[in-house]
């Protein structure tokens, strides 16, 4: 019995071997660090004086939990030390795309997003000409923080 073929298989298109888009280093998942959900805006950066309790709560605690395509932050821990974004399928565990930490996903991957992510990207790209990506970077791609306080 032959397994389903992976036509465009390279070693980096599958789960647990990850490639850093910044330095190109490829390695085991253990060489990387997952920083949780991507594209979470930090309210205080843009408007520190007027943040509703609910907004702060959502920023700290509310996360998507999709079955299927998900967008995450990763860090090239044992390589160049840089953060990047990755689109990963939570069912097949395949990485669909790697992209810059200040960027939105490539258009073709963003299109595949469903549910909350589809809504999110619709909003994030609303009224924005597709060509002017650089201008949109800073407002659309925010970091989440770890949800547990770090201890000494």
């Amino acid at each position: 019995m032959k397994a389903s073929p992976r036509l465009s298989r390279t070693r980096n298109d599958e789960m647990l071997i990850i490639q850093c888009p910044v330095c190109g280093a490829e390695g085991d998942e253990t060489d990387f660090h997952c920083g949780g959900q991507a594209h979470i805006a930090r309210p205080a950066t843009s408007n520190p004086d007027n943040i509703a309790d609910g907004e702060q709560r959502d920023y700290l605690f509310m996360r998507f939990n999709p079955k299927g395509l998900h967008f995450e932050r990763w860090r090239c821990d044992r390589g160049c030390g840089k953060w990047f974004h990755a689109a990963r399928d939570t069912v097949s565990l395949d990485f669909k795309a790697y992209y810059g930490i200040t960027e939105l996903p490539p258009a073709d991957v963003m299109k595949q997003a469903t549910g909350q992510w589809a809504d999110f990207f619709k909003q994030a790209t609303a009224g924005r000409p597709a060509a002017k990506k650089t201008a949109a970077k800073k407002t659309s791609t925010r970091k989440p923080v770890s949800t547990t306080a770090k201890k000494s």
Partner: peptide
């Protein structure tokens, strides 16, 4: 790592 994270992902300027 915490400082790097904020510099790279939030306060990129």
């Amino acid at each position: 790592a915490w400082l790097e994270e904020w510099l790279q992902t939030e306060w990129t300027s």
